[in-house]
Simulated scan of single mutants.
Amino acid sequence: MERQYETIYEAIGGAPVLRKLVEAFYPKVQAHPLLGPLFPDNIMPVMEKQYMFLTQFFGGPSLYSDQYGHPMMRARHMPFPITPERAEAWLSCMSKALEEVGLEPQLRQFVLERLKGPAHHFVNTENSN
């Protein structure tokens, strides 16, 4: 009988897998020509915030809110020119990271679908100039 999970967080393997996912994701982001320039050289604080946010977003402990308050992610991303192309590039990097950490295809697709809405919600400009 297939195990039923209460949250995406549990389904993907909790904290250890989420940590690996963030560690696999950010090198791809930094190397991407559309995304890399948006991020600071010291990516560690960004990675930690992403880990905390995704933990909470996927149904785990409320790490992000406990430390930083309500996520307000759209507002936090407003200073950066987020184009539709950048949203898709972000999702592509995440897709590769999900595959790299070994999530099975159906779960990878489910996680990506869950992230598509927020990724496109952050779009705030049509061109990257």
Rank of each mutant, 00 (worst) to 15 (best):
V123A: 03
P45R: 06
H121R: 08
E85D: 15
A24Y: 05
R19V: 06
Y9I: 00
H32E: 11
M1L: 11
P27C: 13
Y64H: 06
Y51A: 03
E6I: 09
E113Q: 15
E23L: 13
F80H: 11
L103I: 01
A11W: 05
E10R: 04
L107C: 05
V123N: 13
A97D: 08
G69K: 09
M94R: 02
V46M: 05
P37R: 02
R86K: 10
R3W: 07
K49G: 02
P37K: 13
F25W: 07
E48H: 00
Q67I: 07
D41Y: 12
L34I: 02
Y5T: 04
N124G: 06
I12H: 00
Q109A: 14
V101P: 02
S92A: 15
P40A: 10
Q109N: 14
E6W: 03
E6C: 08
Q30L: 15
H77N: 12
H120T: 12
G102D: 09
L115S: 13
G117A: 15
L103H: 01
A15D: 09
A119Y: 01
P79Y: 02
F122N: 03
P81L: 06
E2M: 12
P16T: 00
M1Y: 11
M44G: 05
R108D: 07
E99H: 14
I82A: 13
G117K: 10
L63I: 01
F58Q: 03
L38F: 05
R108G: 03
A15F: 08
I8F: 15
E6R: 15
I82C: 13
Y68F: 08
L54D: 05
K116C: 12
V111W: 04
D66C: 02
F110G: 02
T83I: 07
E104N: 14
R74P: 08
